[in-house]
Write a protein that binds this DNA or RNA. Structure first.
Lengths: 208, 208
DNA sequence: GTCTATAGACGGATAGAC
DNA sequence: GTCTATCCGTCTATAGAC
């Protein structure tokens, strides 16, 4: 049921906002992308701002669902612990690579990230959402995993928060590096692989 | 000679573009910030676009100068090698902290970074400049330093490109973390310090 | 629920007085 | 080099026919 005009408007508006920002997009631009005339938009949303707000609400709902499905609610990622416990270095890289490519290529994820990026200094909600998603929650998730790895003896002891920063930051930087520059992707994936390898070697418990 | 209207216009325009983006700022906004009426702007610049272009040219010139002054022209940072050669961990942290706080607090640097950030998907020049400054050149500089550290025996051998990524990425992430959220600064500086310490310990040559 | 027509505000930019 | 007055295009949004 995603083919209705009301949803198409949100999709096309997001595509435009993600490149040109709220002020750079006119309701006529949105209407043209949808294939209708501008006044027709107002049968679905009461204003341009209303379209923007609907995108934000949709984004927040999607993210909440994603967080719930990952059991990433600040407590423990019970499910994912099992996924990671007996993992090899190669498997870990494949997981990280999957997430990396998801954030670089998933249409919706890319557009939302770009819209948050370019609107963050105007709109506090965008700023908060970006930092929650790409910094706070990302670090919290990995910190919790590393805590568990240390507790379970897979990793040597260490500060799980520092480990999260040092593991995640290069992934984030390489993602920014490839954003809008897909020719960097191959090289970045090689760095990513080497990074995961080195991290595993550095912290894996050798006395096991 | 920075008090003339022509320069003030650029300063005020930059302040506005850095928050609201090109399309979010009107020539009246700029004029109001300068303290004149909008039509008077046109005695100094022939269009709004012309103001924006002048900011970009100024930015590019400043950056070129900075690169030259750092001898960061892709060859070797001859000057900085001496600065870093006999350095202690504490000194290295102070240097990194200085740069970190510069990029977070220097008025011009912050505004330019934000303008590049929010304009990057509309304007290829902004995108290129951002990635050159905050990714490519930053990594190149550190890679070159680490190469020299390895060559001179201060560091154990390793891949200097990987070392640059792993050293710089957490600094970059922590900076993004503190951007527009100064309450995170104290904590981030503590992470930064620990990061520099761990990095030094990991790579410093123990057989010296 | 789409359209045309249009209102009403505001945008960038120019003319011309001082 | 600043101002006021103003042009003209575009913008968001509404009215009303179909």
């Amino acid at each position: 049921m995603k083919g209705d005009t009301k949803t198409i408007i949100l999709d096309e508006a997001l595509s435009l906002f993600a490149v040109k920002g709220y002020d750079g997009v006119t309701v006529q631009d949105i209407a043209r992308a949808v294939g209708i005339k501008a006044p027709s938009l107002y049968k679905h949303y009461k204003s341009k701002q209303d379209i923007f707000d609907a995108i934000l609400i949709e984004t927040e709902n999607r993210y909440k669902k994603q967080v719930l499905s990952m059991n990433m609610n600040g407590s423990e990622p019970e499910k994912d612990k099992d996924l990671f416990l007996g993992i090899t270095e190669e498997d870990l890289y494949e997981k990280v690579k999957g997430l990396f490519l998801y954030y670089l290529h998933d249409e919706y994820a890319v557009k939302i990230r770009r819209m948050m990026t370019i609107g963050q200094y105007q709109n506090e909600r965008l700023s908060d959402l970006y930092k929650k998603q790409y910094i706070d929650d990302a670090l919290l998730y990995q910190k919790t995993l590393f805590q568990f790895f240390i507790y379970s003896g897979v990793f040597e002891s260490g500060d799980p928060q520092m480990m999260a920063i040092q593991f995640y930051a290069p992934i984030y930087l390489l993602m920014i590096n490839c954003d809008n520059r897909s020719e960097r992707e191959k090289e970045s994936l090689a760095f990513l692989k080497e990074h995961v390898r080195q991290f595993g070697q550095l912290y894996s418990n050798k006395e096991k």
